[in-house]
Design a protein around this nucleic acid. Structure first.
Length: 127
RNA sequence: UGAGUCGGCCAGACGGUCGCGUCAGGUCGGCGGCCUCCGGGCCGCCGGUCCUGCCGAGGAAAGUCCGGGCUCCACAGGGCACGGUGGUGGCCAACAGCCACCCGGGGCGACCCGCGGGACAGUGCCACAGAGAGUAGACAGCCUCGAGCUCGCUCGAGGUGAUGGUGAAAGGGUGGUGUAAGAGACCACCAGCGGCCCCGGUGACGGGGCCGGCUCGGUAAACCCCACCGGGAGCAAGCCCGAGCAGUAUGCGUUCGACGGCGGCCCGCCGGAGCAUACGGGUAGGGCGCUGGAGGUGGCCAGCAAUGGUCACCCGAGAUGGAUGGCCGUCCACGACAGAACCCGGCUUAUCGGCCGACUCAUCCA
């Protein structure tokens, strides 16, 4: 598990990342990554949450995917700018992927989505 | 040695490195109290980063199929409905569980299997085939009588459930008496049914004797009948604390100025119509429930056993977007099914493999 300050804690925070305007999204066969900026959290540490639904597999498989994603995320946490919230959703094919594949995919999608959420957020929040 | 039956146990191992959660200790900060040689110290509570230590999924954690504990709601008493259970005795908090036994069936045997009450309380159903399927039934066949003639067949009247064929099942079986041919029509024995009696057993039931009428199919996982049991919902149960907003009450106020701001106090300046306190209800949120229990392990005692009693020792998940992991290396038999969410007792289902014990049969040796 990630330290508490780097985790999304409530359902409301998850929907805020995926649904609120100003967010960015990038997807692939394995993963879908959402990112968003919250005004009130401008200088706080980045936070990440995971969504691994039942179509990925049973409880054991879902735990394994989530743990691998967490481990890869911990490695990439320092590359995220402060104030950004991320939700990583696993696709069914993620069950068959290795940690290396998940890590590479996560790194690529995060870079893409963080770059866009930065520019978009400036445009939206600036009056 | 081979084949087999039953029961129990294990659930990849070791190392390195980076992480996570609960708890404990340290460290840092805040608040309160006490002491003070004014440097600070001690104790308690709260919070936070970091450090250290201990512990951290299963035999099924699963399916959620039964049974309880726990919690809230309901509840005079009785009946009906609905649901569940169903050989006997015992065990258990309870059970659809477990143990022992009985009955029936299978196996040479160790053992295994049975959703084991009632079909004279009533109702229903029994496909296909078949003449006939539950008040039995003449298709072929057999027998008697009558008629006819091409002289061993046809037609008609009747008898017959012994034979054939159909079927899961044809309304006891075998042998005889009997008869035109036959038939429980009658007789003996056997099977089965009912009644009475004796013996054994707590009991299911078993063993034996006498009598009776000769015989009465299956299905209750069809309705039903009998006996017994059952209130409902579930930890998102439920209990507690509780911002903000609104409500009620009281007090002080509206140029006789409450209250707020200007770092604390006084003066001063500015804003200014509400402000303060209490109360109960309660949203967001938080805490408790939350893991030490019908708990394990071992010995002794009672018991065929399930289990009970007693003594000693031990306790090692408690998360809340939800920890128990990521990566690397070595080894081997190359790792199955699978992840706690209030807790127990069971059942059922999934499962790569390995190990141990008891027993049976066959063969060989002594």
């Amino acid at each position: 598990m990630l330290p508490a300050r780097h985790r999304l804690r409530t359902g409301a925070e998850f929907t805020a990342v995926t649904r609120r305007p100003g967010g960015a999204r990038a997807g692939s066969r394995l993963l879908v990554v959402h990112a968003n900026l919250t005004d009130s959290r401008a200088a706080r540490p980045p936070r990440v949450g995971f969504v691994v639904s039942k179509n990925v597999g049973g409880a054991v498989m879902r735990n394994r995917v989530k743990r691998r994603l967490r481990a890869q995320t911990a490695r990439l946490l320092s590359t995220l700018p402060p104030g950004v919230d991320v939700v990583v959703r696993a696709q069914p094919s993620a069950a068959d992927a290795t940690s290396t594949q998940l890590g590479a995919e996560l790194e690529r999608l995060l870079a893409s989505v963080v770059a866009r959420v930065g520019t978009d957020a400036v445009g939206v929040t600036a009056p």
